[in-house]
Design a protein around this nucleic acid. Structure first.
Length: 467
RNA sequence: GCGCCGGUAGCUCAAUUGGCAGAGCAUUUGACUCUUAAUCAACAGGUUCCGGGUUCAAGUCCCGGCCGGCGCACCA
């Protein structure tokens, strides 16, 4: 029997369950449907057989009778997991199960492997992540989480478009990996005989488009960082970055809270979500708290970027953090914040006033030259977004990059690479602009109520199996 | 990269102190005209992750490796 090339499918399980809800036990509707999906369960009973078929919307029972179904013997020999296309009347069985009474059926494709135990499904992480196609049939929560991610991406796009942002695409293969302090992946282009880096952020390209006159741009794309893998980190992840000319960081914070709360509303219908058994608020407006203030509260002692560097270093030492000789007061404060206050930020909160030292692309704060007009948002103790008033002075940008180069020379692993083309772009004039980056996987984890990033990534990065 | 834990049939899991490697589901065969994780009967299914070692005897203990989970580090 050759495998069919097509099936004239005209009905879905969930819609049938709804539109024939009125059928009484034992009643026949007189209406026929063409349904298709996978056989998930099969109950043969002599000259009749029942199958539970699942499609992308839900499940419906297939009811086959010898003498009524034209190829009953083949039906009763189906395997769990086989794809079928069925034509038959919609009926409700005597025992009350809505069913398609099989007139004809075709096996559309065979399943050579099963989809796990009927009860337990597939639980082995290795199998689930390496063969997500099987996991998706075996585990309802896997389907739900990836569906939520898709709903989220859609909502983000629609809200960005609605706010007048235009979607653009910038290079993934780049001659310099800059725009974030992260180790890049390196690859090689043969014809150009040049090494390229996979981007660690689209930031610098996007700002060049603003220089070019596109006032509001966004990119939703994959970035790559050659760093550790954990429940909260995948080497490739999806970032939303957007830039708005004429805005400052305050404007961007307002946009951020509206965007994230709006997306939660679109996906979940609420901005008061439950995450890991605990209520979490994404409702705007979010608290806006200077880093120094949060850190002082957590430490029980007043600190700021103006506290002597060695005093801050001393507090870090007490907390068991190894202080690098090249760290100034700004870096020390940021480290102290991460070590003390960060984890406690449960409801969505903006942390503001990041030190210049850790913010090489941010504009200095208009009230304090040691600080920047930068914010990060946190939820469930984790960073969700990062944004700032963009540094648009090419001379200062050059000196900030040079500071980064000095730190690299002093032995710091993760620093930002100098990008001459970007500095030249700034020389053409970047208007006052605010930018935002949102970790889409992190947001998806919140919306899907998952604790592990891999659950919202269809095919997370795994080590290849070697012989 | 480091630490802890794990890997047994296609799937989910057992296996006492080191003493014959098992069950349910799936597959195969048979019975059954209203099942719902159908039921009943039978057959088959194993490089116990891989490679060494200790021992009369290793799924179990030891060493090395592979892969995964969690934590740390790095980072978002």
């Amino acid at each position: 029997m050759t495998s069919p090339y097509q099936f004239a499918h005209d009905a879905y399980a969930a819609a049938l369950q709804t539109s024939f809800a009125h059928l009484e036990d034992g009643e026949e509707s007189g209406e026929s449907a063409h349904v298709a999906g996978r056989v998930m369960l099969l109950r043969r009973q002599g000259r009749l057989a029942f199958a539970t078929m699942r499609d992308s919307t839900g499940e419906i029972q297939l009811f086959a009778l010898d003498g009524v179904a034209e190829n009953f013997d083949e039906f009763s020999k189906l395997h769990l997991g086989d794809w079928v296309g069925v034509v038959g009347e919609i009926v409700r069985t005597k025992r009350g199960e809505l069913s398609v009474k099989v007139a004809t059926f075709e096996r559309l494709a065979e399943a050579r492997h099963n989809f796990g135990d009927k009860w337990a499904g597939i639980t082995d992480f290795d199998l689930r992540y390496r063969h997500r196609e099987a996991d998706l049939w075996a585990n309802e929560t896997s389907r739900r989480s990836l569906q939520r991610r898709s709903d989220m991406i859609r909502a983000v796009r629609e809200r960005c478009w609605a706010a007048g942002f235009m979607e653009v695409e910038t290079p993934i293969l780049t001659p310099v990996a800059s725009g974030a302090s992260a180790r890049p992946f390196v690859t090689h282009h043969n014809a150009l005989d040049s090494d390229f880096y996979l981007r660690v952020a689209p930031e610098l390209w996007l700002k060049r488009l603003v220089v070019g006159g596109f006032e509001r741009v966004f990119e939703l794309g994959r970035v790559f960082r050659n760093e550790g893998v954990s429940p909260r980190h995948n080497p490739e992840f999806t970032m939303l970055e957007l830039y708005a000319a004429y805005w400052d960081f305050e404007d961007m914070m307002s946009f951020t809270e509206e965007l994230v709360a709006g997306v939660a509303l679109d996906v979940l219908g609420t901005t008061e979500i439950e995450y890991q058994g605990r209520q979490l608020s994404l409702s705007a407006p979010w608290a806006r708290r200077p880093m120094a203030e949060l850190t002082s509260e957590a430490l029980g002692v007043e600190v700021s970027v103006h506290t002597p560097r060695d005093v801050l270093a001393g507090y870090l030492g007490e907390r068991g953090v190894e202080v690098h000789a090249s760290w100034g007061a700004g870096r020390c404060l940021a480290e102290l914040f991460e070590n003390s206050a960060e984890e406690g930020l449960w409801d969505a909160t903006f942390v503001t006033e990041y030190p210049v030292e850790v913010s090489p692309l941010s504009r200095r704060h208009r009230r304090d030259a040691e600080l920047t007009e930068r914010f990060e948002s946190y939820a469930a103790g984790r960073e969700l977004s990062n944004g700032f008033s963009e540094l648009n002075d090419p001379d200062e940008q050059r000196s900030r990059f040079e500071d980064q180069a000095r730190l690299a020379a002093a032995g710091q692993d993760e620093t930002m690479a100098i990008d001459e083309d970007y500095i030249r772009a700034l020389e053409w004039g970047l208007p006052p602009t605010a930018g935002l980056g949102v970790g889409m996987d992190r947001l998806a984890v919140l919306l899907a109520d998952e604790s592990n990033l891999r659950e919202v990534i269809a095919f997370p990065t795994l080590k290849p199996v070697r012989d």
